[in-house]
Design a protein around this nucleic acid. Structure first.
Lengths: 163, 163
DNA sequence: TATTGTTATACTCTATAACTATA
DNA sequence: TATAGTTATAGAGTATAACAATA
């Protein structure tokens, strides 16, 4: 009962939104980058999945197609993302980060990670070790569509094809 | 280096938004309750801090005063929250859940927790134990204004005074 | 004068429904 | 006919700036 799935879920539901609050406030505070959490997550996905389609990004982030389409509109308008029709299947969009998008993503990532690290620095090593272990356990449980992760080269090929 | 604050932060930043995605999608899927994550968090806070002021809720959730004011507008209009002027200081608002608000909060909480528990059920006990330990370590680090938590009776008094 | 909230305004996030283009 | 995206429309979430009321 100490770590039943239900007790575990209760704690996750209590603590995870608290951490998100810190992440969101930290991102908002950086006026230079000025990107929201959903935008950041989209850039992060495209950073690791260059050439992904709109559907793939929407699925991963958890948005509907129209919502993601609109969000990409904004990122393209700001020069952070490129959107091209896929060479092989002209219904599909091929999305990728521009150098500016990569740059903004990197700096936002570093700033947010540093902010979190500052909080975590107060904890003893044993607790940080438990956190790392917990995150490693949680990651596969909550990652969407793990089957897509099994073919990392598919996205790359798509990116190359579109040139 | 295995569990440096920075490595720990990196993993938290990767995994926590993934969990939030699941929580958000789960909440959206329940049309009966139909409340968003920020609304849920506000109800949760008021459930434990009956009689809190607008500023207190805004601080905890991490919103500005106008944003929270507007959100409370919506919750009051839906009959989930009561908003009265504080008897002692008429600038302040005294907020609390209505019975309907309590009911919706409870059922949304149970449904979301059950959804998370279902995911976590697949993990071995040792990993769930690490997750519980990690959440307990993270909780105090990310909770806002821990000084206010030291006076749990303050909110109650305010609630009584306002009658 | 400082504090607590609200109103005004604007932009992003998000959804559903209806549509276009391609396969 | 099915799939990938976009457009139209609407509502919630969020911010800043300006304001009103109270202390």
């Amino acid at each position: 009962m100490q770590a039943s799935a239900d007790e575990c879920a209760r704690q996750v539901l209590e603590v995870v939104p608290l951490i998100m609050r810190t992440i969101r406030i930290e991102m908002r505070s950086h006026r230079l980058q000025d990107i929201s959490v959903p935008q950041f997550r989209t850039l992060a996905f495209l950073n690791g999945h260059g050439g992904a389609s709109l559907s793939e990004v929407a699925e991963f982030i958890g948005l509907t197609l129209p919502s993601m389409s609109k969000m990409i509109d904004g990122l393209v308008a700001r020069g952070l993302v490129t959107r091209q029709t896929h060479a092989g299947d002209r219904r599909r969009m091929t999305l990728a980060l521009t150098p500016a998008g990569q740059s903004i993503y990197q700096s936002a990532h570093m700033a947010t990670q540093a902010c979190l690290a500052q909080h975590l620095d107060a904890l003893p090593l044993s607790e940080r070790a438990a956190i790392v272990q917990a995150m490693q356990a949680l990651h596969p449980v909550f990652i969407p569509n793990p089957n897509r992760e099994a073919e990392p080269e598919a996205a790359l090929e798509a990116a190359l094809e579109s040139k």
